[in-house]
Write a protein that binds this DNA or RNA. Structure first.
Length: 452
DNA sequence: CTTAGGG
DNA sequence: CCCTAAG
């Protein structure tokens, strides 16, 4: 049973979220790309923030000299990068640290290369035999059950904050009768980014209407829902959730929903009327028979929840009011640009979008993994993480040797602090003892090596 | 690419 | 987990 609480994301109603830059006679407005009602929002707010998403839409009025346009784009994408990482708690955390270089940078470490120094089985055995601890020679490989795509991906669109409440089944095997349902709660959707340009001579009222046009255009006809697992888009609609990996016991899965514009080409401006929202709701309605999903009507959900939502509502109602008033010309002086003259052009592959890099999801080590790690380190020592990876986590694609090294670091730390201070799934004391022992042993070992 | 450490 | 200087 799916429970989805869908609401279109806050757009740019909060003035603080509006980023404006001046280009000659033009003002460029961008939504900051996410809304406050996503739980963990961690970002540096600065003037450069570019809520970079793929589904940008340009509302053009008049001509825009190409050089100015280029300049605009360059300027906009010159900002800091954004990272979107939906976390387990159902929040998408956004962080832009400005340091990340390129998307897909070593997304996945490849261990296929045969290093000359890679120890042969013979050498390895010899090495292992030197180790003082008794080490059972059983395998301790970890399968990457879901072949996760922890490769950082650029944001193909905007993500939704998803709260996942999985039923309590245990790992592996087919789901039991009671575990066939996955409960999902989508806390919010992010509306694909809009790009609005309007002359500084335009009125606030026309700006509102222009924005509204853009919103309704994007929402109106083209949206469909994309599903992401581990940051990777799930394309096969025929697969079952279970086959896809969306099942019980997937608290650690990274499940994301996204609204994606259907049209890659120019979207004609919507006709008059406020059908956009209604149709948006329709587009979110799942196909009958797929699953039992109940959707909260967007307009309803908009009225509930965080302050930002309220802000949004009031903002939208303002816009609506504007539109409701027949020809608000009498109230506001509307510039020559008529809404009809506006063209809405989605920016699907704007260069800046590729700066979107997703942080890998956090995947706490299980006790079994810790066990394997400890065992491997006991054998190999603390300075050969690549071999540890190869030996014990070769099939766990989401664990890099750096991860293992880091985990060992935290394990040592964990072992040293009092049990009360430890968090997460408790690691058996026996394992922690082994950690300390191995750490001490290999520390001495390394010291010796250094002396030589 | 790997290591090793700080962030 | 991320980032990165070093090797």
């Amino acid at each position: 049973m799916l429970e989805m609480d869908c609401k279109p994301h806050a757009l740019f109603c909060s003035e603080s979220k509006l980023k404006a830059s001046l280009f000659e006679d033009w003002i460029t407005l961008r939504p900051s790309g996410h809304a406050d009602n996503i739980e963990t929002v961690d970002r540096d707010d600065d003037e450069n923030d570019t809520g970079c998403t793929q589904a940008a839409t340009t509302v053009k009025a008049f001509r825009l000299p190409s050089d100015v346009a280029d300049q605009r784009i360059k300027n906009l994408s010159a900002g800091r990068h954004w990272r979107v990482s939906p976390n387990l708690n159902g929040g998408a955390s956004f962080k832009n640290d400005g340091k990340r270089r390129s998307f897909f940078r070593n997304g996945r470490t490849s261990y296929t290369r045969q290093r000359s120094q890679r120890i042969s089985p013979f050498n390895r055995r010899k090495l292992f035999n030197q180790f003082p601890f008794s080490v059972p020679d059983r395998g301790f490989q970890f399968e990457d059950k879901f072949n996760s795509a922890d490769k950082r991906s650029n944001c193909d669109n905007c993500t939704a904050a998803v709260g996942v409440a999985s039923s309590v089944a245990r790992r592996h095997s087919q789901p039991g009768p009671r575990d066939r349902n996955v409960k999902l709660r989508i806390k919010s959707f992010t509306v694909p980014e809009l790009f609005v340009e309007i002359p500084t001579t335009a009125t606030v009222g026309s700006l509102k209407r222009t924005v509204m046009e853009a919103v309704t255009t994007v929402l109106g006809d083209g949206l469909h829902v994309g599903i992401f697992l581990q940051g990777k888009k799930v394309r096969d609609d025929s697969k079952t959730l279970f086959q896809t990996g969306i099942s019980q016991d997937h608290k650690h899965r990274n499940l994301g929903f996204a609204l994606e514009p259907r049209h890659a080409q120019i979207i004609p401006p919507p006709g008059p009327g406020e059908q956009g929202l209604t149709r948006h709701a329709t587009s979110l309605t799942p196909e009958p028979g797929t699953s039992s999903v109940s959707l909260v009507p967007p307009l309803t959900s908009w009225n509930s929840g965080a302050q930002s939502d309220l802000h949004l509502v009031s903002c939208l109602s303002n816009i609506s009011a504007d539109r409701t008033i027949p020809n608000s010309q009498s109230l506001v002086s509307i510039p020559a640009i008529s809404v009809e003259a506006l063209a809405v052009v989605p920016f699907h592959h704007r260069p800046g979008c590729h700066e979107f890099v997703q942080r890998r999801i956090r995947r706490p080590f299980s006790v079994a993994e810790v066990e394997a790690l400890v065992q491997a380190v006991e054998k190999l020592g603390t300075g050969r993480w690549r071999d540890v990876k190869l030996g014990a986590f070769d099939n766990a694609k989401h664990r890099t040797y750096v991860d293992l090294k880091d985990k060992w670091k935290t394990l040592v730390h964990t072992a040293r602090i009092s049990p009360q201070q430890r968090r997460g799934e408790p690691v058996p004391q026996e394992l922690l003892d082994r950690v300390l022992a191995a750490h001490a042993y290999w520390s001495r070992h390394q010291a010796k090596q250094k002396l030589k």
